[in-house]
Design a protein around this nucleic acid. Structure first.
Lengths: 339, 339
DNA sequence: TTGTATGCGTTATCAG
DNA sequence: CTGATAACGCATACAA
């Protein structure tokens, strides 16, 4: 017995089966029009030699990679994992793979990933991109989630902000505060949520003074600090709309620490509806983003593009939805002191 | 002006700069020994043409990919994301990329990912593998986290179980229950935790009757159901050790629903120390796995291997650690009825 | 310091 | 239905 080569190639298998390289290649790629006999024989040779295709060579030769790339700032954000969950179900159903790359929000890294995937993947999913990278991709199709581009999937954050305000207003609140998200130049989610919130209050004739708006930076700590400041005001708010669930949880903890009962003395509305929202006590009323559906839609659009099919629509905008749980209730009646 | 080609190659850049392909290649790969003048000129040509390397061609020609592959069942498990967080910091510091592939716990898919990465990546990180895939990789180095293989990183689950028991015993508990994790053939984490727990109780001469051990399946629902069953026993336990934080949260909710106060009437210990453990109220006492450190160590080992360096040790086993928060306390004194 | 020749493993194309 | 040939874009080895 001679030693097998370290890396088995198509050529090796061909020799082993007594056919040409192309026949082996055709068997591997399930090309139609081959005699079952040779197909069988080649298959055996493949198994016996332990052959595995060389992905790089396949790509270089113009073959399909059956691979979709994902570029995302981080993967430990629930926002991202839920989207990926939706996308991967669609992609795997179609028999393709998902390769996920993180950028740590660094535009330079994002660009590197883009150049890599451009040649490696059949298409690319861009989640919350930090910069405009569309030109980099050349002929490789790209779908963007929560960002700009020729094909996008997004959620109506302004409407989400409005929903939060309307819910609190309908409960009878009039002194309502906002814990703002992180404001950055490249993203507008925090700004959109605040704008929608403000608009709805204005429409109802309810005032939102500046001292009732605090930065929460989307973090638990930020939410807790902001809520502490709000609750120790001479005239504290009876309700708070936090720009995401994490900062809402922080607000929940601040209330607990200060002996303010939720929802009896304070109503809190979050945003996102990630896991912790339903696990928290009291369970959080929040604005739900259909993250999984967004991931699915993005994947479907991308699959269309990779197949040369024009997608039904280039831009999909999903509505946000109110999820009422246990952290909101009507405000306490003002105690009227009888003279 | 003539239209630039759809995909710019080294050749194009070389023509543009009036040099040969190799000079351009050398500039790109920062080879030493070139006149600054040509380097400068080539660089300009690269920028002007918008050239990006073709990763596939580079690999095929024997170049390094600067890419490490990750194969993991899922990415929306906190257990996994924390590990990846640790690994990516190390990898990016070394100037490489991390490409993450999910398998949905399907051995067939796992195998496909393996064959893909084998030719694409310089090395592969296998997280909680569902099957033994080491042979598939040939010369590509592999490091396994929470699984078997020539190079592994793991945590001492048996010791973790012991820690949980010892903590509860030291508080004075003697009627202690266990909510078990999911028992599968390919993994031994749940079994190890239970074994360590049992051993420590035994060593202390404390009995663990069968009816005080319930399946929790690592889920919130499972934990809640198990705790409900335990707490409605004629003689309910004064403490529960849940095999992970999720099922511990479920137990917390069950206690709340039944009006059992934690930690006054019931102590609960979780396992993992993921985010929800510290966010829960009361904050969860739990057994911490150094997930980030595990990811870092695995990445370092893998980097060594890709560079042909023999790692300091082939198998690293991290200790678990007890994190005491607010969900554990001494048991209530038995009410002694005076005659 | 720069250029030339060669081959990596695969698939498309077209001939048999 | 199967086989020969020519790319694909790059880097290694060596020559100039």
């Amino acid at each position: 017995m001679s030693d097998p080569p370290l890396t088995v190639t198509l050529q090796d298998v061909a020799r082993h089966a007594g056919v040409s390289k192309m026949t082996v290649s055709n068997v591997i790629n399930n090309k139609p029009g081959m005699s079952p006999a040779t197909r069988e024989r080649v298959q055996r040779a493949i198994d016996e030699t332990g052959y595995v295709v060389n992905a790089a060579a396949r790509v270089l030769a113009g073959g399909r990679m059956n691979l979709l790339g994902v570029i995302t700032p981080r993967i430990n954000w629930p926002f991202v994992t839920e989207i990926l969950h939706g996308a991967s179900s669609v992609v795997e159903n179609a028999g393709l793979d998902l390769a996920i790359f993180t950028t740590a929000d660094n535009p330079r890294v994002e660009r590197e990933r883009a150049t890599l995937l451009r040649t490696l993947a059949d298409g690319v999913l861009l989640i919350i991109p930090a910069a405009d990278e569309h030109q980099v991709f050349g002929p490789t199709p790209v779908v963007t989630i929560a960002g700009d581009g020729p094909y996008t999937v997004s959620v109506d954050d302004e409407q989400g902000g409005r929903l939060a305000a309307q819910h609190l207003l309908s409960l009878g609140h009039t002194r309502i505060a906002h814990i703002r998200g992180a404001i950055t130049t490249s993203r507008h989610d925090a700004r959109d949520r605040e704008r929608g919130f403000r608009t709805a209050l204005q429409d109802a004739g309810v005032d939102l003074p500046d001292h009732l708006v605090r930065d929460g930076q989307y973090t638990e700590d930020g939410g807790e600090r902001a809520a502490r400041a709000l609750l120790t005001l001479p005239e504290p708010p009876t309700a708070i709309f936090a720009a995401n669930d994490r900062s809402a949880i922080g607000a929940l903890h601040a209330a607990e620490a200060l002996g303010v009962r939720v929802p009896e003395q304070l109503s809190i509305v979050g945003y996102d509806d990630v896991q912790i929202a339903s696990l928290a006590r009291p369970a959080l009323t929040t604005i739900r983003q259909p993250l999984q559906a967004m991931g699915e839609r993005a994947a479907l659009t991308l699959l269309d593009l990779t197949r040369g099919v024009t997608p039904a629509q280039a831009h999909t905008r999903f509505p946000a939805a109110l999820v009422v749980r246990d952290s909101t209730a009507p405000p306490v009646r003002e105690v009227t002191v009888s003279p």
